[in-house]
Amino acid sequence: MKDRLRRFLNIDRRWLFLLLSVVMIWPIIHPSGIAGRTTQQSVKDFYDFIENLKENDFVILGVDYDPSIKPELQPQAVAALRHLFRRNVRVCILTFISGAPGLIEEIKQTVPQEAGKEYGKDYVVMAYNPNYMAAMTQMSIDFYKAYEKDAEGNTVKGMPVMKGINTYRDMAGVVEITGTGMLDAWVAYVGDKYNVPIIGGTTAISQLGYGPYLQNRQLLGLLGGMRGGSEYETLTGRKDKATSGIDALNLSHMLVIILILTSNIILLVLKEKN
């Protein structure tokens, strides 16, 4: 018995990999359909912020992630853009991450068409900028010195979407979706310094780190990982990739708990027998 337990504890980890694969693939083929029962306060705050924007307000949407964390953040960005469009808010999409322009292009090919929005009139996409500090501070002085041309090489000044926009003073806020420290940068360089409202979407790993900013209202709302994304999708009334994603994670989460408990119980049994 003891030897068996010991052998089980030293099981080839490839069996665990296989087990994880099975519990991840199964719900993709057969979704459980169990609905989430709660909404976090920070998600509600994120939703309410966009809901309370006025028609024709101007908002920056930062899409600062690359394909490595796309499954967590792309659903958040898509849902936020849909919500902003529904509120008839003008959107300026920016990025400081080199891997993001391709993902922005993916969003651009679907979301604006669905909402019937026109490029240059309702939204605009700026070119990748390698230095966020420089761009963020520059936009407080003169937006057009930070971004003279959009991602397609068109001159930005004079576009209908930019009407009346010169600095942060003319904007209603920033929605930053990122897995990097870019949200911290928006809070420090823009939110705190120029009194610009900031809301964000981030990976589950980074989510806890924003607690102090949320408590201080330096950050007005936050979506954390797939769960945050799915709760936000539910609030906006359009369930999409985050909702199906969180459904697929049900079994794998249970697996991790079972594995931690099993190994510790085995250790306890072995210790007692000794």
Partner: peptide, 19 residues
């Protein structure tokens, strides 16, 4: 390429959880 490189790490979570 980029997304799979990071997705592989999920497997090590279960391995860590157990071992």
């Amino acid at each position: 390429l980029a997304s799979t490189m990071f997705a592989v790490l999920a497997f090590y979570i279960v391995s860590t959880a157990f071992r």
